[in-house]
C-alpha cells in the first residue's frame, strides 16, 4: 500500500489507486494551498483542481477523490462551519447534478468543512451513478486513511 504524504496531508492508497498532493507556486501577492487527487485510473499530469482533464477519461467503475484546502481565513465562515470530515459518505450523498462538469453517467458530491483548523473541500466523482453503492465503499476505504495535520504556526 502506497503512503502519499506532503503539505500536511496524508493518505494510504490501496491496490489500483494512485494520487498526488500538489501545491502550485504562488504568483506575486497570491497564496496557494494544497490539492490532493486520488484516483483508480491513470491521472493525466495536466488537470484542473476539480479534475477537469481527468474525469473525461473515467470508466464506469472509476473514482476520483479531490481534497482542496482553502485560505485559513475561510475557517469559521458559514460555508466551512461543518466541523470534522463528512465521511463515511453515503450513496445518497451523490448526484449527477453535483458534478463540476456534468458527464453522462457520472455522479458527484461536494462538502465543505473545517478539520484541525484547516478549511477543506471534499469533492468526489464516481464513474457511474448506477454503481454508486459499490463505489462509495471504495471511497470510504481510502478516505478512512486520510490524515490532516494542523496548520503550521506562523510567528
Amino acid at each position: 500500500m502506497a503512503r502519499l504524504r506532503g503539505h500536511g496531508l496524508a493518505l494510504d492508497l490501496g491496490p489500483g489507486w494512485e494520487g498526488q498532493i500538489s501545491r502550485r507556486s504562488p504568483g506575486r501577492g497570491e497564496t496557494t494551498h494544497p490539492v490532493l487527487h486520488a484516483a483508480t485510473f491513470a491521472l493525466p499530469p495536466t488537470r484542473g483542481d476539480f479534475g477537469s482533464g481527468a474525469v473525461e477519461t473515467m470508466q464506469p467503475e472509476d473514482i476520483l477523490v479531490t481534497l482542496l484546502e482553502h485560505h485559513p481565513d475561510a475557517t469559521g465562515t458559514p460555508l466551512f462551519s461543518a466541523s470534522g470530515p463528512p465521511f463515511p459518505l453515503r450513496p445518497d450523498s451523490f448526484s449527477p447534478t453535483s458534478l463540476q462538469r456534468m458527464l453522462p453517467g457520472q455522479s458527484g458530491m461536494q462538502a465543505f468543512f473545517t478539520w484541525r483548523g484547516r478549511a477543506l473541500c471534499l469533492y468526489v466523482v464516481l464513474g457511474s451513478h448506477f454503481l454508486r453503492a459499490r463505489l462509495v465503499r471504495r471511497v470510504n476505504d481510502v478516505l478512512s486513511t486520510l490524515a490532516v495535520d494542523p496548520p503550521p504556526v506562523t510567528p
Binding site: 502506497a2 502519499l4 503539505h7 494520487g19 501545491r23 485510473f41 491513470a42 470508466q59
Partner: peptide, 19 residues
C-alpha cells in the same frame, strides 16, 4: 511512489490497472 519534479508527493499505480 516518489515526487514530481516540483517535489510534490506522487504515487503512480502500475499494478491492478486496466492498462
Amino acid at each position: 511512489v516518489g515526487t514530481t519534479p516540483a517535489e510534490d508527493p506522487l504515487a503512480v499505480a502500475v499494478t491492478n490497472t486496466r492498462h
